[in-house]
Every structure is written in structure tokens, then in C-alpha cells.
Amino acid sequence: MTILLFYLAAFVAVIATSLVITRTNAVHALIYLIVSLLATGFVFLLLGAYFAALLEVIVYAGAVMVLFLFVLMMLGLGRDGEGRERELLQPHLWYGPAFLCGVLLGEWGILFLGWSQPFPLHAVDAKQVGISLLGPYFLAVELASMLLLAGLVGAYHLTELQRRPGA
């Protein structure tokens, strides 16, 4: 049951991600990206990391992507940008990246499929995460908060500048 669900989620994630990178309509791409994130979140759930899974839904799919959608709506990149985007996305652009990514994937395939013996997977609950987070990883938490503060200030500054005409 679990493994079937995993393959289903993986399938959805891969298909949705492929669609993300090939769509010309930004909003559609974003919706596919949300689907991909939800599928990944489901995989997290199957791996027993329900806290991470819910964070993925709440923060990633629920907040970060909304921000994207906001900006897309502000820039008018949905259906209006489709024509422009189609111009930018010429087929010949795909060859090089596809090759490079193929090579990379192949390398990883060799690497990962080499570990043939199965490993047991263990669930990790939120309590364990919390204890580690505020124990040995306290400095990381502080750094992350610093990063968020910097991001906040940076985003505020960047968008503030925009309002001044001719600045």
C-alpha cells in the first residue's frame, strides 16, 4: 500500500515538475509547481516525516507560492505573457541543458542504484525535531532567523525603490 502510494506520488511529482519547466503560462506552471510540492509533501508523509510534510504544505505550497502568484499577478505574466514566453522558450534551447541534466541524472543513477540492499526507514516525529532544533542546532536557528531578517530587509528595500519614479 505504502509503496504504491509512493510511486503514485513520485509519478505525480515528476509529471507536474516536467510541466512546470515546460509551461509558457506562468500561472499554470505555478499551479503545477504547487501540485509537485504537494506530491513531495505526501512523499515526506510516507517517509514518516509528517512535520516536514505539513511544513512543506503550510510554508512552501501555502506561503512561498502565494508570493509567487502575487508577483505574477502584479507583473501580468499569466495569459498575457504567454506569447512572450513562447518566444523566449525556443526548442533549441533545450538540447544543451537536457544533455547536461541527463549526464547528471545518469551519474546519480549509478551512485544511488549501487546501494542495492534495502534500508529500513524510521519515522521521526516533531518532538524529536524540536528537541534537536533548539538543542544542538540552536546556532543554525539563529542563523536562519538572521537570514530571514536579511531577506525581509532586502525585499523591503528592493520593492521600496520601485515606488520612487526615476530612481
Binding site: Y50, F51, L54, V57, I58, A61, G62, A63, V66
Partner: peptide, 9 residues
């Protein structure tokens, strides 16, 4: 948590 996730969706 699920409820909050759904609310955000």
C-alpha cells in the same frame, strides 16, 4: 497542523 495546511491552501 493539517487544518492549518488546508487553511493556507
Amino acid at each position: 497542523l493539517c487544518l492549518l495546511g488546508l487553511a493556507s491552501l
